[in-house]
Design a protein around this nucleic acid. Sequence first.
DNA 1: CTAGGGTTAG
Length: 751
Amino acid sequence: MTSVSKMDVNKCFPSSFRWSVKDQALLQICSFPVPSVSSEQILVKNECLVFAQMPKRISVSTHYHETGMGEKGDLARNVLDSSHLISVLKFCVAEGCFELGRSYHALIAKIGLDEDGFVGTSLIDMYAKCGDMDSAVALFNQMPHLDVASCNCLISGYASCGLFDEAFSFFMKFDSFGNKPNPYTYSTMLAICGTLSAIEEGKQLHAQVVKMQHLSETAVSNVLLTMYGKCGAMEDAESLFKRLLQRNLISWTAIINGLYKHEDFEKAMRLFCLMRENGIEPNEYTFTIALASCGSVKNLDNGRLLHALVIKRGMALGEFVGTAIIDMYCELGQMDDAEKQFKGMGTLASKVSWNALTKGLVHNEKANEALDAFSEMVRKDAVCDEFTFSIILKACASLPSFTSSQQIHARVVKANFDTNMHVGSSLIEAYTKCGSVEDAERVFSRISVPDVISWNSVIKACSQNTNPRRAISLFRGMIHKGFRPTGSTFLAVLSACSHSGKIQDGLEIFQSMVREFGILPEEAHYSCMVDLLGRSGQLEKALDFINNLPIEPTASIWTPLLAACRCHNNLQMAEFVAKHILALDPNAAPVYVTLSNMYAEARQLVDAENQRKLMKLKEVTKEPGCSWIEVKNKIHKFFSHDRTHPESAKIYNKLNQVMMQIKDKASTNANPLYAEDDSCLYHSEKLAVCFGLISLPAGKPVRVFKNLRVCTDCHMFMKFASMITERVIVLSDNYRFHHFNKGCCSCRDYW
DNA sequence: CTAGGGTTAG
């Protein structure tokens, strides 16, 4: 739509319609675009699809254009009648052509059709849907007759502008306009209850609906189903669904979607099948949910079946269904199929399709491929949105790659997404993994509207890296600003308290978690508290804490106490704790290592050796772990520096070589990670040697790791030239590196 | 004239 000068506008009108002085003023207010839109202009703006739907409406304006030279009466009667104007206004709403709508308003006012109830209602609807509630209300107040429809338009306008309180209060004074709510009113109000999860209000409206006998309106019962679904009241939704006399496709879709949203995927699938048995043919909407459910229940057979059905109906390349197929295959780990589908979609692939594929790659631990896909996306000039950046930053974090994070960050800033809380949190997460708290904090300060998760990310960043004290002060700042902390906030801040030796703060914060914020502590919180007490040497208190827990203590709650016993040289308690841990988790290899080391220090060499033997016995009889590829990937993750680093390829090749050697060596062993002839340290040491991190004297396993630090909290390797520490590193069965050195691990000590 | 269902992120 092009703006034209007043002269041009006047040319569009017959002489009798020339703008008066008053109109000229109106014209200025409206910053007038040309009121009659030619078909080409619409075509340019909205692509051919819209054009295909539009010929009748366009003919209104072109017709007006051509015949506009007639008499005023002709014009109003033949062309600019209310039904044509209403369809133009509808078009404006559908396409968001607010300016065009306003110009038509001027035209309508000019020919006096704004007195017409239907046209007036359409105008109110147009203003409301375009977000100009002031104008909508002004028009509403000017209307000579207020019917239900115009009231409904105002309510749905409030709703679409997010002004839900206004919608409710308007609904409450419905009577004062001499109108009774009709099915349309209830539909809109119930939809609002759905988005607000306002179940109580929803139920009251439900009662009214029944009383007014509007339940037989399928649209009303459908929105009731949706409302209950969104509020998580699936029992209500299902009982209503069962009682419905008429169910159409939308009713079925509403209930299936409700089940899907509440992760009852099996039931969602069952109802999908039932719907088809009832002779109702699913459409794209329904297929999208069904495909997603299939992905979530990890049912590949049904997934392929659905894929086939969708192909048969010619829907497989549609934007939503096509993307749902990509998503499903990603969820099922079938990345080849996902990529095949993506390629099949060709130019039909939207940015959401790109995002779905990238997300799949990241989740299937193919971070490098995800980065490649992102490069491809950029190369093809596909639009990157906040989702794209959020996803790709996760790839950067999982590598982790500092350089890539910085490069993506630059793009984020350029695209103005650095103020977005999702993107910001992902950036913080990535920088945290790369060990750069300064960057993380800087990113946080740029987020325009940080939410709890943004706060959690930045607190975690400080807590896990250099600055536990800062984490605590950020936590206090967050509370001060009125944010409601979550379970993970407390996890991060309690760990910070533990690392900075702030015992009292830790205890107080833990209490406030329950008392002030009503958050039920989970296993990890208890474990954190045991760590807090134990680290500071209050072993008895820690033991008391465990003994008085409201839940049965687990191995991971006992474990920090064992570390504390080692740290504070309490062999007696260590034995006691070890017994508990092994009773709960007989395969807890680190327990043997700790005990063995402690016995060795206490010069109880026979006991020390026994622990070693016990451990080996356990390890050898254990089931083989995951596949070699997985092991390789995990180890690579820990050792890799940066994929963009020139040394990267070299390191990777070398890693491959070593892994092949280890594999050969281990092929005779039950658990390939632990060689029989050597200590369990063998492989991790060998890898470290391989990267030049330590030198290994011949014939003797060495436990001196120079310049290599590993943090048990964030599982990151750090190299520090100046530091030499004696430590033992065990590659445990979950393939994380645990270290058991004298003096507890605390990142703070390393910097 | 006004109302009802769907995809991606931290």
